[in-house]
């Protein structure tokens, strides 16, 4: 009995030698190129997307900083101009109290 098992095992192990080699389909290269073109596109888009995002962020930060600095200067100028037009003096409530 043990001998028959051994024969079966050896026959099964040897069966791998009778397996024919497989061949990739005839359009393998065309399919590969098509897939490469598709997979290249998102990378291209992603690269440009990231670059555009960086440029927009830098532009926004620059604009914000520039605007906030100008606004501070503008406010001071505007208040001073308004005060001189209406002959208003720079006094605080403490000055008023002293005058009284």
């Amino acid at each position: 009995m043990e001998e028959s098992f051994k024969n079966e095992v050896e026959k099964t192990l040897a069966s791998v030698d009778q397996v024919d080699r497989l061949e990739a389909g005839s359009y393998f290269y065309s399919k590969l190129r098509a897939r490469m073109e598709v997979s290249e596109q998102p990378v291209f888009k992603l690269k440009w997307g990231l670059a555009s995002l960086c440029i927009i962020t830098i532009f926004n930060v620059f604009t914000y900083l520039n605007f906030s600095m100008n606004q501070e200067e503008d406010n001071t100028d505007n208040v001073a101009q308004l005060a001189s037009e209406y002959n208003m003096e720079w006094t605080s409530i403490y000055t008023n109290e002293l005058v009284e």
Binding site: R21, L22, E23
Partner: peptide
């Protein structure tokens, strides 16, 4: 190399479609 690569992929996966995908 396509047949060599495909044949080895098939030996591992034993699915023609998956082996072709993997060979690509």
């Amino acid at each position: 190399y396509q047949n060599k690569v495909y044949n080895l992929c098939y030996s591992y996966l034993r699915s023609r479609s998956e082996a072709e995908d993997l060979a690509q």
